[in-house]
Design a protein around this nucleic acid. Structure first.
Ligand SMILES: [Mn+2]
Ligand SMILES: [Mn+2]
Ligand SMILES: [Mn+2]
Ligand SMILES: [Mn+2]
Lengths: 219, 219
DNA sequence: ATATAATGTTAGACTAATCTAATAAATTAA
DNA sequence: TTAATTTATTAGATTAGTCTAACATTATAT
């Protein structure tokens, strides 16, 4: 465990480097809303503590120790979100903010009890997988709704952002994790998608449809 | 809301000044496990922020703003403790440590939902009163078991410390909040007390009996 | 291939929270 | 009522996390 600030850096490094395995100072600075030199000095500290591997002007990579730490924090974040929804009855659009605070609570007991009460869940309220105590993540094939062919019938598995505004939008459209939908039409002009959910047609902008992840592959 | 550190100072000032209305730098330093000059400079900061009233070499007093802040933190601490016991099934001896962290979580929604789920409780798992959202505390007459006369029949209302070792001790003796007990004998020599709980005699040291609060007054 | 732009690093400063060492005030004991 | 002791304050240093300004490197565009 590092400090709260270190934990937030490690978590951001993890998510930003998921695709390519590395992340750049400028990307981190943007995400964490701090200036470049701030990131630079913190990265040097994280490197000294062996959470990241880094050489000047190169990309930043998490070490195994860093990955383990990141997954432990993400586990706490996602367990907390699910707990807030399932046990405390809050909405999926309002739990992320609270989980950002709860993820830094240091208590195995607290989190293992949550896990137990939730019956060892595999995914958070946004469909994101919950790592187990060893940092293992259950994987599932997911593709953006925006990449689906017309006529396809798919299930909503997850959303890739948990911003309140986006989730409020989905609430308004009546869409939830687990819904089965059919792709009716994809507009070439603006990339918007019309889907059918239990007899009702719903139109989604490209920006929305690329953040909804559905079952199956791209075909 | 101040910083986490400020919140901890305010909470300690509140509890240490409950009896006399003021607290001294040295008492705070001891409680918070920091050195005198550290407290001195923090008290000056809290005074600048109007959380305390203070003049050099005088006792430290919370302002109304400071009291309100203290009660808000205590409310969160005690709600969290009760929630951990009632909803999450943890033991009363292990919740204080977790609540020390949860009390700094900033979310009205989180705490009001807890309050609701617990049905607006009046006391935490250690019998301590829970302030309402306006900082009002339900009062109840309580006296230390050590001050009770032989022959008296009383109810355990609260414990005045929530150290794990003390609560483990009570668990071992089989004593809980709400128990009705009878004072059988008070030893003049060491102040130990023998009580009767459902036909069984239990001997408690003076140190233990002065931290068990029971119903009624001293007579 | 050189100039320009973008990105990253170093240097130096600031605030929050802590410390030790030195000094001052208040309290207690002689 | 002085002297000794305890308690409090000031001064100056340290670490974590941040900033701005200046400089260096790498990438991009002419
Ligand atoms: Mn989240
Ligand atoms: Mn989530
Ligand atoms: Mn407590
Ligand atoms: Mn308590």
């Amino acid at each position: 465990m590092g400090t709260l600030t270190e934990e937030n850096y490690i978590k951001s490094i993890y998510s930003l480097s998921l695709a390519t395995g590395e992340v750049f100072v400028s990307e981190l600075a943007k995400k964490l809303e701090v200036k470049l030199p701030t990131v630079n000095s913190m990265v040097k500290k994280l490197a000294a503590k062996k959470f990241v591997a880094y050489a000047p002007y190169q990309g930043i990579k998490l070490t195994d120790k860093g990955k383990k730490e990141a997954l432990a924090i993400i586990r706490k974040h996602r367990l907390a979100e699910l707990f807030l929804v399932k046990v405390m009855g809050l909405g999926w659009e309002e739990v992320h903010e609270i989980a950002e605070q709860l993820e830094h609570v240091n208590s195995e007991r607290f989190y293992n009890r949550m896990d137990e009460l939730l019956n060892y869940p595999k995914a958070d309220p946004h469909g994101e997988p919950i790592p187990d105590t060893h940092g293992k993540i259950p994987t599932e094939k997911r593709t953006p709704l925006s990449a689906q062919k017309e006529g396809k019938k798919v299930k909503i598995i997850a959303v890739s952002v948990d911003q309140k505004s986006f989730l409020d939008h989905l609430n308004a459209k009546g869409l939830q994790i687990g819904d089965t939908i059919m792709i009716v039409k994809r507009e070439l002009f603006d990339g918007s998608v019309t889907i059918l959910k239990s007899q009702k047609e719903i139109v989604l902008s490209h920006q929305v449809s690329e953040n909804i992840l559905v079952s199956g592959d791209e075909t």
